[in-house]
């Protein structure tokens, strides 16, 4: 996504960007036994926070997005952020109002309005568009509700709740909640 020239240029011009790792990513390696190995990530997930200069979260873009939808969100959040940041004495009130307005807008949306109307083709495209729709329709609503209750939350203080309740990856669980799926049909007792 950050290799996309339009997105990267927009970020460079309109934000002060930094990235942080919340934990290592689980990977899976298939060893075909003939020297051929294929490695893929298993359960990575991402979040883009837009914050004020003191680090208070204004809004969050959860998970993966189709590039144009991601750019639309960035533009919308950049504009909202500037309006909030120029009135720093009313910052928390304005952030709270922003979430109330966004929540009302989200609830008024019909899911069909969020889902893409155009056909998509290409490897992984359908999944990406489906993820975008789910993130816009459901996860962003969750985030607005959570941030309304946590005024002044920062990425650091919010990340565990976001990953656990919205992105479904418990950062405190060493197996990220995947253990029950990995062990469900495994026939051997490795502990004995």
């Amino acid at each position: 996504m950050f290799s996309n020239p339009e997105i990267s240029a927009y970020i460079n011009q309109n934000f002060e960007p930094a990235w942080e790792s919340v934990r290592s990513v689980p990977t899976i390696t298939l060893d075909f036994g003939n020297g051929q190995k294929v490695t893929r990530t298993l359960h990575g997930n991402i979040a883009t926070y837009v914050c004020t200069a003191d680090g208070s979260i204004i809004d969050v873009i959860p998970g993966v997005y189709e590039p144009q939808a991601y750019l639309r969100q960035l533009k919308k959040m950049s504009e909202a952020s500037r309006n909030i940041m120029v009135q720093s004495d009313r910052q928390f009130d304005l952030i709270s109002k922003y979430h109330k307005d966004e929540l009302a807008r989200n609830k008024a949306l019909n899911k069909l309005m969020v889902e893409p109307q155009t056909s998509v083709e290409g490897h992984g495209k359908v999944e990406l568009v489906s993820d975008t729709s789910h993130n816009e329709w459901y996860r962003r609503r969750q985030i607005h509700q959570m941030l309304l209750k946590q005024s002044g939350a920062t990425p650091d203080s919010f990340k565990k709740a976001l990953y656990k309740h919205v992105l479904h990856a418990d950062l405190d669980d060493p197996h990220l909640g995947l253990d029950k799926y990995l062990s469900a049909t495994y026939p051997f007792d490795d502990n004995s």
Partner: peptide, 25 residues
């Protein structure tokens, strides 16, 4: 920026919002 702290410091000067990207890995 190498750290979020540096991004915040520059946000104070530029007036631009901070973008923090979190990921696993």
């Amino acid at each position: 920026y190498p750290t979020t702290a540096e991004a915040k410091k520059n946000s104070l000067l530029s007036g631009k919002p901070v973008l923090v990207f979190h990921l696993m890995g």
